Simulated assay, not measured.
Amino acid sequence: MRITAADVPALERGVALLGSGGGGDTVTAAVLLRRLTESGREPVVHRIADLLPDTLVVPTGIVGATAAFAEKLPSGDEFASAIAAIERWTGQRAQALMTIEIGGLNGLLPLVVAQELGLAYVDADLSGRGLPRLDQFSVAATGRGVAPAAMAEPGGRVVVLAAAADSVVENGVRAFLSSSGGWAAIALAPIPAGELADHAVLDTTSEALALGARVLAAGESPDLAVLETALDGQVLARGRVLEVSRHIGPGQHGHPGFGRGSATLTDHRDGALLRLEMENEYLLALRDGLPVASTPDVLSVLDRRTGVPLQCDAIRAGVEVDVVCLAASPFWTDPRRRPLLEPRAYGIDCDPVVAP
């Protein structure tokens, strides 16, 4: 599958929806991808079946404060440095890339990186949506593990976290980011293409493109039935945001956690109150106090007028929105893996709500 300039708006909309309110603003990454395609350098997305089983695929992407990425743009060397570092550490040469996360800007940026480095790009990722922590990646869920992981930050520093439990790697990454300008490029150890079916979420780029194309085709301010058909999902509420509250979430060992908050709106259809609990992503929806949807399903909030997904840090009182729910990737419906993404993984004492 070749990504053309005409595909960029649909792919951008699809990855923004799958970000579930997180994953970072897609605008900058979409500009870079559009410029690449308009210059005639169209990325090709390869299905796993198209690759030899021993093709070494490096997961890569941006970690950290994605808002800082737009303010402190990359020099162009960060990804190459991180990938080179993981190659040196593992003694394996990258033959293809995949993204660590299809949701948000990481659904777009690694396509640009693969084209710039002359590497194949694989239709898979380690998340199937937007996720805040490395220890929630699919390789953590399957026991393969996140380490080793190499990071390169805009100031030129490169760090390799060689071996540790996934939670320790996550904490080490956050410690590095706190002193590095807020974001870094990351590369994980190569995974043979023949093993990706067991350790990754497959076909996520092609599915994001198809999702975005359907939603864009539905037009602005579509009827509920049209929107639900385009999303292949459910509209939980349609109404005006009444209140948004934010606070610092629970952390570990005395350190503050991610920003937490909630947004409340009235459903214009029947007057019910819908409250969204959020961290970096939208996590739980309660309708008149009863849970009706939750992670690992993808909750997203769309501007009612434009249909553009609203990030958790951008939702404001007074905005007319549609709150929607998309079913989680089958990878995360496995009861052995679901605990990594269910509400209690974020400190919310609630059972996951399974989409019908």
Rank of each mutant, 00 (worst) to 15 (best):
Asp223Tyr: 14
Gly103Glu: 00
Asp349Val: 12
Leu284Met: 14
Val298Leu: 13
Ser20Pro: 15
Gln136Val: 04
Thr90Pro: 12
Ser262Asn: 08
Ala140Lys: 13
Arg41Asp: 07
Thr205Glu: 01
His255Ala: 14
Asp125Lys: 15
Val44Tyr: 06
Thr306Met: 04
Leu340Asp: 03
Lys72Tyr: 09
Leu32Ser: 10
Asn171Lys: 03
Ala293His: 04
Val57Arg: 09
Asp166Val: 05
Leu236Glu: 04
Ser167Cys: 03
Ser75Leu: 03
Cys325Trp: 02
Pro352Glu: 00
Val31Asn: 08
Glu38Tyr: 03
Ser180Cys: 12
Val244Asp: 02
Asp349Trp: 13
Glu87Val: 06
Gln234Val: 15
Leu36Ile: 11
His247Cys: 09
Ala230His: 12
Asp135Glu: 06
Leu302Asn: 03
Ala200Val: 10
Ser245Lys: 05
Val57Thr: 06
Gly128Leu: 08
Arg129Trp: 02
Ala230Asn: 11
Leu326Pro: 15
Leu109Glu: 00
Ser221Val: 03
Ala210Val: 08
Gly143Glu: 08
Thr4Gly: 15
Ala85Tyr: 03
Leu51Met: 14
Pro250Ile: 00
Thr142Leu: 10
Leu36Ser: 15
Pro343Phe: 07
Asp232Cys: 11
Glu153Ser: 13
Pro309Leu: 01
Leu51Asp: 08
Phe79Cys: 04
Arg88His: 06
Leu56Pro: 13
Ala208Phe: 09
Arg93Ile: 05
Tyr121Asn: 09
Asp270Ser: 08
Arg316Ala: 15
Arg13Ser: 01
Val173Asn: 08
Thr66Cys: 13
Val168Pro: 15
Ala96Gln: 12
Arg336His: 06
Pro343Ile: 00
Gly61Trp: 04
Ala210His: 05
Ala141Lys: 14
Pro352Met: 00
Ala187Phe: 10
Asp50Asn: 01
Glu153Val: 07
Ala120Thr: 05
Ser178Met: 04
Leu202Thr: 09
Ala345Gln: 12
Ala237Cys: 10
Leu108Cys: 04
Arg338Asn: 01
Val112Asn: 10
Trp332Gly: 10
Ala124Phe: 11
Phe79Leu: 00
Arg88Ser: 07
Arg88Ile: 09
Ala114Phe: 05
Asp351Gly: 08
Val308Ser: 01
Val146His: 02
Thr264Tyr: 02
Arg269Lys: 11
Pro59Asn: 03
Arg275His: 03
Leu273Cys: 09
Ala6Glu: 12
Pro330Gln: 02
Gly156Lys: 05
Leu283His: 06
Ala6Phe: 07
Ala197Pro: 15
Glu78Gln: 15
Ala96Pro: 15
Ala272Ser: 13
Ala68Arg: 11
Leu196His: 12
Ala82Trp: 07
Glu116Leu: 07
Gln234Cys: 15
Asp123Val: 10
Arg13His: 03
Leu134Met: 14
Ser127Asp: 07
Ala94Glu: 13
Val139Ile: 11
Ala5Lys: 12
Glu342Cys: 09
Gly107Ala: 01
Glu12His: 03
Asp135Ala: 02
Glu342Trp: 07
Asp77Lys: 08
Thr266Tyr: 06
Leu276Pro: 14
Glu320Ala: 11
Ala184Met: 07
Leu283Lys: 15
Asp288Trp: 05
Ala217Leu: 14
Gly172Arg: 14
Arg41Met: 06
Ala163Cys: 13
Ala197Gly: 10
Val15Met: 04
Thr204Val: 06
